[in-house]
Amino acid sequence: MEMTAGYDYNIFNTTFPFEDFPDDDEPCNLDPNPMEVTAQAFIHSIICALGLIGNTLVIFTYIFYKRTKTMTDVYLFNVAVADLIFVMALPFITYNEQHNWKMGPVACKILRSSYSINLYSGMLLLACISGDRYIAIVQARRSFGARSRALLYSRLICSAVWVFAMALTLPTLIYTENFEDVSLAGRATMMCQLSFSATETAKLMKVLVPSLQMAIGFLLPLSVMVFCYSSIIFTLLRAQSSQRHKAVRVVLAVVVVFVVCHLPYNVALLTHTVDLFKERNCMPEKIKMQALTISRAIAYLHCCVNPILYAFIGVKFRSHFQQIMVDLWCFSKKYIYSARSSRGTSDICISGLKPSDGSNNMSSFSA
């Protein structure tokens, strides 16, 4: 059974042999056709460009304009950092998959681990956001005094999330190897996949890695979000507060989009994991691999969707983005106009960076 780097095999395909396909007279070739490879590269390029611009703007806004005033702000800042790490790695992943992993074994391990870190940290941070919103809205009276130390708590929690995400990524980091694979057609290609020397280790990891991704990277955060947001909606319906509805709308939209992006991939991954040690026919396996590729691309979309949600739903965040555009225009004028007009332009640009006494002091995601 011929394997290539066209699909994302780092989670579920290894040097451990796959089952035979008894109903087929010829070996099963899962190579993607050139059109699929081109389409995948095009989609990844769009995701990378939008994610890079959007998440950079979010980070830039928090550092220079908005500041992190609440626990949710700290969490969303870290989500943007996690997304930015992955979108910066994505073009290198695409390039290496199409050019036999020329960047070597170190790049192989780091790039293959980038999605895992992004997934675990991003989903767990969104679960933390839902927990913070639950405490702020449902437990508002009880948590009033404790939230004065919110920034310290949130930074400690974020540090713990990052350490936990890195720990969960260790199997991928340790067992991913860069090696030469000779196909049935006699073509030698460099692969970057999970690789094991012992059969028992291969069997364990082929189930453990996707199971951890589904359980801790998806089902656990989803359960926390469902509980927290169900309680929040119930509280808001009783309170009839339009202001609180606006406050939770941004975070709720971010979580819903994240779940929609990752649910298809986790369902496809679950189906593949269940069938790992069964006999499979070639055509259903090809369809399954195509479904995994498509759902993987949908999962990647979350990296560029979150900043769009901030811009179009969060009123205060949208105003900060607009201020960034104004300041960038001002700074460009500074180098175009003469020295006589540069003083006034510089003053306008600097004033945009200063927090006002009004909306800049309030979080756009706070109740």
Results as ranks from 00 to 15, higher is better:
L50K: 03
S114I: 05
N33R: 10
F77A: 03
P34T: 06
S113T: 15
D23C: 08
T38Q: 10
E97Q: 15
I46V: 14
T68A: 13
V58L: 11
F92H: 04
N100D: 15
L84P: 05
V58M: 09
A89G: 07
M88D: 03
I93Q: 01
I85P: 02
P91V: 11
T70M: 06
R112T: 12
C28D: 06
E97R: 15
F21G: 07
F92N: 03
Y65M: 10
A49G: 09
T56A: 12
A39I: 13
Q40G: 12
T56K: 02
I63H: 08
D31V: 01
A39Y: 01
N96C: 06
F64M: 09
P22C: 03
F42Y: 05
F42V: 14
V37L: 14
L57D: 00
T56D: 01
V106K: 05
D83P: 06
S114H: 05
C108A: 10
F86E: 05
A107S: 14
M88W: 12
A49S: 13
F64N: 04
I59Q: 04
A39H: 01
P22G: 00
P27H: 03
I47R: 00
I53H: 04
N96Y: 04
K102H: 10
K109H: 12
L52R: 03
A107M: 12
P22L: 11
N55R: 05
P34Y: 04
A107W: 12
F92W: 05
L111I: 07
W101Q: 01
C48V: 06
